[in-house]
Nucleic acid binder design. Structure first.
Lengths: 214, 214
DNA sequence: GGATCTAAAACGGTATACCGTATGAGTCGC
DNA sequence: GCGACTCATACGGTATACCGTTTTAGATCC
């Protein structure tokens, strides 16, 4: 069943790249002809994107590209600060964390050249820990926030509100530390470190990051 | 747009009441003729129910009534234990919690006669706190778990695996305590008490509650 | 010039139809 | 009897068509 998924993937990419601006109307018919499919798959793709937080439905059923406010960012951040330390704790408690993908991710981050690439690998690293937690629902909840986070970050990048300098080294160092704690299988320490990591990440963001990006 | 929603409501009720058994196939065509609508609204209703965790899709796109295992219960419980204390903390920190609906809920619980009614009011009480947290995404995440929890509880009720005796008084007492702490606007205390409340609730469940209910 | 009314176009909700694939029962061969 | 094969059926994915409602733009009136 590729139609719905490919339509969703296409729209997701266009939204994250900023080709579709916040507040833009996503009319089913127009999207359908543009993507060369019928309205039904488009309709379902829009539902998917709504669940991901990239699209919102108006009172009369019309879909619009999501607009984000500083309050949205605070909400997302508060949830990361709760969910991810929990995931780190569970992953450490389960023990036998599969470290190879995590190490590969850190190595790739060390070779990354653009801020977009670093961000992508950063999110991937965190997703690996969510998966390692073994709680499928926890992962699902986190994934439902991930696209929104990507949306926020992509808009931030587009207006260059990011201290590129040092980000890569900072990320690699923090992730190395996280990985080493996960290996020690000390749940409490892993939880605490993840909390600090995310708090630190917030401070690392540009000062204007809590304002609405466009 | 009532068709999709009413179809979802109807199916949700049938699943929660146990009229549709775990593992039952929900064929779009069959459901459509049974509910007197076309396949399109049924299709979208099934997506909604999948998001709620009441329905799962097989590899070939067929929808089945969700089956729950003890691992599912543990996951749900672990997430409540993270999300709800957070909500209590946020609600207490915001202050000015609207206590009237909470008090009304406690009073209604005191008058409740059946275990189903107590459970419904219990979930409603917790939902009110989630709403009072002011974090819309936190509420959304919790709501996405709520139907699954209801599914679990309804199946538990149906096999009478529940100590009805004392449940009502226990619930009312615990909720009174929670409400009083929320009024003091002490975030840390509210968080801690909610964590204890949920842990206590787990112990209150019948011993066999962590086995698969049917 | 601005607000209001009106009519045409746009849009979403739903029904129906078609097609390819998966499923499951019946049959054939062992 | 038991397993593999086959074919009719069931089912899901998608396209198209229709209808009522909402938007929107143009015209009218104050």
């Amino acid at each position: 069943m590729p139609r719905t998924e490919s339509a969703a993937a296409c729209l997701r990419q266009e939204i994250l790249r900023g080709e579709l601006a916040p507040g833009d109307l996503l009319a089913e018919s127009a999207v359908a002809v543009r993507l060369g499919v019928s309205r039904v798959p488009v309709r379902e793709a829009l539902f998917t994107l709504e669940r991901e937080g990239l699209v919102v439905f108006g009172p009369t059923g019309r879909a619009f590209v999501r607009e984000l406010t500083s309050a949205d960012f605070e909400e997302l951040f508060a949830l990361r600060l709760t969910l991810e330390p929990m995931a780190a704790r569970l992953a450490a408690r389960r023990g036998r964390v599969d470290v190879l993908p995590l190490e590969a991710n850190i190595a790739a981050t060390g070779r990354a050249k653009t801020i977009e690439e670093i961000t992508r690998l950063d999110l991937e690293f965190h997703e690996l820990i969510l998966r390692a937690s073994g709680n499928a629902r926890l992962l699902k909840l986190w994934l439902s926030l991930r696209s929104e986070l990507e949306l926020w970050l992509s808009r931030l990048h587009r207006q260059h509100q990011w201290k590129t300098r040092g980000t890569r080294g900072e990320t690699v160092g923090a992730h190395r530390l996280l990985l080493s704690v996960l290996r020690t299988e000390s749940p409490a320490a892993a939880e605490r470190l993840m909390r600090e990591h995310i708090n630190g990440w917030k401070n690392w963001l540009p000062s204007g990051a809590r304002e609405e990006p466009r």
